Amino acid sequence: MQITLDSPKTDLKDKLVQTTFSRTNPFQAKILKNININGAGSGKETRHIELSLEGSGLSYVPGDALGIVPSNDPELVASILEEMHWDEEAVVTINKQGETLPLKEALTTYFEITLLSKKVLQQAAAFTENEELQKLLLAENVIQLKEYCYGRDLLDMLRGFGPWKATAQEIVSLLRKMTPRLYSIASSITANPDEVHLTIGTVRYTANGRERKGVCSVLCAERVKEGDVLSVFVQANKHFYLPESPDHDIIMVGPGTGIAPFRSFIQERAVNNATGRSWLFFGDQHANSDFLYQEELEKYQQDGVLTKLDTAFSRDAAQKVYVQHKILEHSKELFDWLEKGAYFYVCGDKEYMAKDVHDTLINMIEKEGAMSRDSAEAYLKDMQKQGRYQRDVY
């Protein structure tokens, strides 16, 4: 009987190919669960998604992000093809390496078509005599140009500034490659081996007379279901991590989908029987429909994994209450935690929430530490240097 052995070299090479998943070689992760975790009557839709990492060799630590390589909305792609009377099967070159794809596939999977930039409009101007576009690009109209780009996409440009003297190839050559979308990981791999969980707020809004959809969030909400796959990779976050010692106290401020990394933190500390105290501030619009992971969090509190849980629901009272108001309400105890070495974390909206929390924190330190404003700011800067004040904001 003849036995044929596989070459060890080939075997090892295959294994390397299989396990080296990255941004440029994403893993096809099977969706195990995809549910809306907002209650009835909520004005929001937040997806809790569980993905299998089995066989990927991928790992992560609390604080890391998961990248998803999305595809564009088929309806938007169809509208662009229709507007320009383009042949969806026409082959276009997509990059400098000379790789090609049928036009419809290129617009769906390769190019960024939902964002406009000054550069795209400047280059597009060569293919039209539209006076409105030429005027918009004048140096003195820089503010109007920025305003035009905000919330508009390729279809808006094609509809607004024709007639076009350009081939499909010339137009797609103006576009940049679609970028992966990054989401804070909402699970601990220690607690959920071979799995990664995400908390994704679905983005839908109306602007300039058209319904708009977040590329990746609406893909997850509308077009993929359990059993389907998503192209993913792990993105390490060296600036957002748990203290090395589980004895340290942690304070977490994560309203809305900002809860994601803190679910990961809490799971990890539960598995490792951390002795440090933990305090979570969570906020959203309504307690009965927007308290994400309520049962889980309350169970962690009952079990003593979560020492304190404070919530702020802005639309449940005549006066709006946000997480920063809750921080001020507990300023004395919070400052005491900081004085005892607690780590302070913020995750979520950069423009408003994180800024308000930052200012509130300085006010609290100033008041409770009986310090000058400068000293309070220096105190917070020092915490930052020690890695005890960390922000994951977007």
Rank of each mutant, 00 (worst) to 15 (best):
D6T: 05
P180N: 08
I171Q: 10
G369A: 00
P102M: 04
H48Y: 12
L338V: 09
A40H: 07
L297D: 08
L51S: 02
T199K: 05
Q97T: 13
G341V: 04
R269E: 05
S71D: 09
E82T: 14
G276I: 11
T360S: 09
S56Q: 02
D73H: 10
V357I: 14
N38V: 05
S188K: 09
L175F: 09
A186W: 07
G160R: 09
K320Q: 13
K355H: 10
V172S: 05
L121V: 01
M1I: 05
I94N: 06
S331D: 01
S79M: 12
N273Q: 15
H286A: 02
A166T: 11
Q28F: 06
S314Y: 10
E333K: 07
V224L: 09
L121F: 04
E226Y: 04
F262D: 12
K104T: 03
V77S: 10
H48F: 15
K135M: 05
Q294V: 04
L58I: 01
L76Q: 13
I80W: 07
L292A: 06
W164P: 11
T206L: 05
N208H: 15
V203S: 11
D11F: 00
Q319P: 00
K299C: 03
L116E: 11
A317W: 01
P74E: 10
N272H: 15
M383V: 01
L103I: 10
K225S: 13
I250A: 07
T109G: 12
L51I: 11
E296F: 10
R391H: 00
N237W: 05
L53S: 03
V234E: 01
S22V: 03
E295N: 13
I266G: 09
D228N: 15
E132C: 03
E195S: 07
E195T: 14
L182A: 14
I37H: 07
A207I: 00
P243L: 00
K381D: 12
E50C: 04
T257K: 10
D6I: 04
V229R: 14
K238Y: 09
E296L: 08
L182R: 04
H248D: 14
A342E: 12
S264Y: 02
I143K: 15
Q123R: 14
C216F: 10
K135W: 05
G209L: 06
T128Y: 05
E244D: 15
G57K: 02
N36M: 02
L219W: 08
E147P: 01
